[in-house]
Design a binder for these strands. Sequence first.
DNA 1: ATAGTCCGGTGACCCGGGTCACCAACTCAA
DNA 2: TTGAGTTGGTGACCCGGGTCACCGGACTAT
Lengths: 209, 209
Amino acid sequence: MPLDLAEIKPFLPDFSQELLQVIATEGSVMDVPAGMEILKEGQYVRMIPIVLQGLVKVFTRVEEKELLLYYIGSTQSCIMSFSAGLSQSPSRIFAISEEASMLLLLPAEKINKWIREFPALNDLFFRQYNLRYTEMLDTINSLLFGRMDQRLYQYLQEKSRLKGEKILDIRHKQIAAELGTAREVVTRVLKKLEQEGKIRQTEAGIEIN
Amino acid sequence: MPLDLAEIKPFLPDFSQELLQVIATEGSVMDVPAGMEILKEGQYVRMIPIVLQGLVKVFTRVEEKELLLYYIGSTQSCIMSFSAGLSQSPSRIFAISEEASMLLLLPAEKINKWIREFPALNDLFFRQYNLRYTEMLDTINSLLFGRMDQRLYQYLQEKSRLKGEKILDIRHKQIAAELGTAREVVTRVLKKLEQEGKIRQTEAGIEIN
DNA sequence: ATAGTCCGGTGACCCGGGTCACCAACTCAA
DNA sequence: TTGAGTTGGTGACCCGGGTCACCGGACTAT
């Protein structure tokens, strides 16, 4: 698969010419539309994706109940696929593209060799582990303290920040799914947040203050 | 600080002679009694510990409420201290020795160089990140599903497994602290588990079936 | 013996949030 | 126009578990 080196270079400024060259010959680029399931639960991973452009969200599931763990933005990668790719164990999470995205796919069996040869790649995965570790710690803390109103408010702020939009057009049902709760609860809590002046609900969507 | 190479070698069979040599000259060994706070919340990390012998437990805290995240056993390390050491950011967790333990301390400012030079060390930290990632995912899932009885039962099983004892002599209060709940709740749920035949409570402690 | 402390046990109560049952408004296809 | 699906809004109810108050037994120090 001939991959245009110039296409990926702008997204990976830290990578050496040599590394980019290797990636160009052995990797591939995939464009995915919004809302596509990129990684399934229980799936074995043969290609490790790095998000070049767009936004991918990662979920865990436990008995019908789902929870958004974190987002993967540009030049970020999916730790679970890295981990699952290396140890040839199935994925415990699933990932969905939130926006149309461009993914760089690296063959899992090569990664082990590459991280030894290219410090930049090694660093990237260490940084990703780090980032996800702290994000999951945040998730645990917010679950531990409970408080649906706080969790929902933080969720909206994060979403607004990532999308760069002050007004979010999103269904209550989807919010509920991403927070692992019920739709009615979201409706109730949103009303409460509005009364507290933290948000405003219009026809256009939810505005975060 | 002169460190006996022969002392640490048996615990680190995967490390090359050269790596052990470097560790021996630049690292140090510390013996800690049970119940000692090894890493405090908010603390900056200058030495990255690797547990050679014993057992260390890692907690998060959010407003007076604590939760046991995972245990660090022999030849395992603390990801948070690694991460905090590298990025010179303060620790967000705290760690306490569950048993008397022997720790190998590596200077944080050298680690970055060492993981490049010694693949065995690089691997160790990758494996640790991996392990903690999946453990934290388990924690999130159990918090998400709620169910105190399940969480408590799994906690007892894990504890029993790690200590190699079928009967645990432990205070209800401590269980409550490690699960982030209240003592009364633990008492109640233990009774329920006993009625279900999953455990037995005697004067000697709690027996897991 | 007395008092203080730690531990476990229990009942009463409350609260957050999950569930259920509906309903109104809107959109879209037939 | 009609009917079906989607979305949001609401009230009623229940349940797990956190909180409070209190008690009795074991142990210890004085």
